[in-house]
Design a protein around this nucleic acid. Structure first.
Lengths: 190, 190
DNA sequence: AGGAAAGCGGAGACCATCCCCGGTTGCTGT
DNA sequence: ACAGCAACCGGGGATGGTCTCCGCTTTCCT
């Protein structure tokens, strides 16, 4: 649908260079890395950057799609290897770790689970995360270990909240697990 | 201790004007309101603003001390009117509401509960919030309705996480209560 | 080869933070 | 009352970020 023509060779080159440099820059300087600086490092003008990625969010998303998709795949693996309740919790853990560890992912994932009506950027990658969550939540609810009155999106939001809480305890890596376990108690069926 | 001399009259005038204007500006534009603009509105130069409040955080804190102290007082009232467990939860609710409602308070409260070692600004008001939380948590633990293995600071962080989670569900005001109730299950003794 | 369209790039407009220092104001002692 | 000296003011300007605009270059197609 968005494919009138294949991209011109130089355009594709620049696009990919930008993506590579952006991922490095976001990792190094966080989600507020200077965009003009990214353009400069990639050896292109800032105009080129803004044409390919109109907003910071668009670039952020494009730079991390593979990481997001890996989370989607991971959901499938966990669903196969663990009982539904445990699979969900382990996946939420890995999601929270990614949220904190990969600098710049926070903003991306957070806008993915925002009630879209008013927001600025509805990232496409949101559907991957939401889809994975929905599958794991449904399975756990069918199994009867997860209370039936919560929606997948709520679970995602709460996991994001847990990640934020853990972030406040900088330097205590075990805190994510600890807080998530407390959340799990609240989500348990019964 | 910080009181070598009383403040000069013009200095005090400017200080208070800035505080008043800053509270308005933060309420209107959020925590990223332009500082130079605040200075202009207050009828002072930007130099004056930066002399009184070296960082954005300092201004934010000064502008909201009264709101924070009101939360401290409220903790006392709730402790008197309700059983400890309920008092804690109601207070956390009001804390979360303040976090979301008063734009600009979020950053302030969040830095208050951060593991201070590396952070930029250790706000004095943090002790008010932490003190209130400690009292309510202790009482609830003594009563036996709150699990004994959580620390007050952890409860604060989790409440902050709940507020963040609720923020993602923009426009659903009941979500704070809902998410807090889930957290409460996880924190319940037993 | 040659022309049209797609794409490039960086100058520059705009806005924010924050320092700096010449000039001004309020306080204090006589 | 008034002189003198801190303390304090104010805004100009350096720095750095975002994002647009448009003349020029590159690619692709025939």
């Amino acid at each position: 649908m968005t494919q009138g023509r294949p991209m011109r060779a130089d355009a594709r080159r620049n696009y990919e260079r930008l993506l590579k440099v952006a991922a490095e820059a976001f990792a190094e300087y966080g989600e507020n890395a200077s965009l003009d600086d990214i353009a400069k490092r990639a050896g292109v003008g800032s105009g080129t950057l803004y044409r390919h990625f109109p907003t910071r969010g668009a670039l952020l998303e494009a730079a991390y799609v593979d990481r997001i998709e890996a989370l989607g795949v991971r959901a499938g693996e966990l669903a196969q290897d663990l009982p539904p309740g445990e699979a969900l919790m382990e996946w939420l853990y890995e999601l929270a770790v990614a949220t904190l560890q990969v600098r710049g992912m926070k903003a991306l994932l957070s806008s993915a689970v925002t009630d879209g009506s008013g927001a600025a950027a509805p990232p496409a990658c949101g559907s991957v995360v939401k889809g994975a969550a929905a599958r794991l939540v449904d399975a756990a609810q069918a199994e009867g270990t997860l209370r039936a009155d919560v929606q997948p999106i709520e679970v995602l939001r709460l996991a994001h909240g847990v990640a934020m809480a853990a972030e406040l305890a900088q330097g205590e890596p075990g805190e994510i697990r600890r807080y998530l376990r407390l959340l799990a108690e609240g989500l348990r069926a019964g």
